[in-house]
């Protein structure tokens, strides 16, 4: 709540054109758009909540549930696909026990795919938060996940 209020302080003159920048700031700092934020923004900009929700639901970037601590994003573009990213996705799904687009029950990992990350020369590419792993093989999946799990246990 207080972080959202602080974000609103950065925009001293309320105007409906500020809706998107404010939503972006909230998404950045919270990782999602909390319900409270929708209400606060609507109060501040004098826009009905239905409109604030409508705008934020339009863009893929905004989400309404908290994301996982580690967001695993697999490239499934043409080059990665040729380098067997399909079976790589299956391996991740098997090891995490979730399918692409879902989030693990402990909120540690989420799994998603993307069309291309622009690193086709180093296919297949896996992105974990802002860390890129290139040329990933099926055998490396367990290792990748275990490093994170071990780090978390400490």
């Amino acid at each position: 709540m207080s972080t959202i209020k602080n974000i609103l302080l950065n925009y001293p003159t309320p105007d409906r054109s500020l809706l998107l920048p404010i939503l972006q700031d909230v998404q950045c700092s919270e990782g999602y758009i909390p319900a409270d934020a929708v209400v606060l923004i609507s109060d501040y900009l004098k826009i009905p909540t239905s409109k604030v929700y409508s705008v934020s639901a339009f863009y893929e970037k905004f989400r309404f549930t908290p994301g996982a601590k580690y967001a695993i994003c697999l490239c499934n573009g043409t080059a990665c696909h040729m380098e067997k990213s399909g079976s790589l996705i299956k391996e991740f799904e098997k090891q995490l026990g979730i399918s692409a687009g879902q989030i693990t029950r402990d909120k540690l990992f989420s799994l998603s795919t993307t069309p291309c990350m622009g690193a086709c020369g180093k296919a297949p590419v896996v992105k974990i938060n802002n860390e890129f792993h290139t040329g990933v093989t099926i055998g490396q999946v367990a290792e990748l996940l275990n490093t994170i799990k071990n780090r978390e246990e400490k």
């Binding site: 319900a35 929708v38 239905s50 409109k51 929700y53 409508s54």
Partner: peptide, 16 residues
């Protein structure tokens, strides 16, 4: 009411 989402899955509904 307002529009929710886009494309084939667009809905008209209340907030959230």
């Amino acid at each position: 009411f307002d529009f929710i989402g886009k494309g084939m899955t667009t809905l008209v509904g209340p907030t959230f």
